[in-house]
Design a protein around this nucleic acid. Sequence first.
DNA 1: AGTCAGGCAACGC
DNA 2: GCGTTGCCTGAC
Length: 285
Amino acid sequence: MSVSGLVEIPYEGEFSLVDTLKSGQLFHWESALLDGCAGFAGCAGGKGPSFITQSEDGRVYGLSNDETLLSGYFGLDHAMDSIHATFPQGDEVLAEAIVYCPGIRLARQPMWECLATFITSSLKQVAHIRAISMKLRRRYGVAHELAGQTFYSYPEPRALASAGEEALRECSLGYRAKSLHLAAQAIESGSFDLAQIESEEDPEKVMAALLELHGVGEKIANCVLLFSGGFHGAFPIDVWIERILRENYRKRVRGQKLQKWAVDYFGENAGYAQQYLFHFARKTL
DNA sequence: AGTCAGGCAACGC
DNA sequence: GCGTTGCCTGAC
């Protein structure tokens, strides 16, 4: 890499930047050109934009005003070998799913933008979740320049709380506007202590707190635990996961029973298994 | 035109 | 506790 400012980010095991960006965890990274080098750029939390790229030989290079941000954000610090070692042995479905997309990583995002984005995700397809995220960022976030392009941070709770539900509806949110606005208000008013929950180490306490929010159920709460809290044992069950558990694992139960079975069966890194299976399901079912 | 999509809350039993 | 139903919107 000859581009000035880019720093190589080391990692072990498989990693695919493109697959991870397409994996339905992150919705706002955009193609970008930095000194002629093609990659992706986006803002994480209230920070200015970062740039990341992966070369043909797999090496990852990043540019960020926060040195350690990208490694943690894209899960490049995960020890994949030991994670895979915790999976159920002899599970051929999971093994095939891993071969299908071995480079997916669990990202770790700031909690507010993760929570807010998944509140807006209900009954939506990836492309639309992305469109909503971009509209909200453009309208209520903070603009930053990088390589002649403008990137927007995710709006702070205060910005969405003061915008009001009706204004949020204009961002194609539909009935989700109410939930997003209420969540922003709860954080802004202090009735939902985001900082305290972000530092909470007991996933069950985080789950209980999240479920208090209007518009947040089991699925969205588990997404926040997994994609932001760093709780890799969380196992969000959406229609695709339910489908593959039903068709490939012959599970006929649903809801809490299915949830409990999956967490017990896939183990402490059930969330990683979920990511592999999710992509496999979307391709094959 | 009707259906459906990466859920949730409210309601009925 | 279970299973239904309505909900905004855009894509097909």
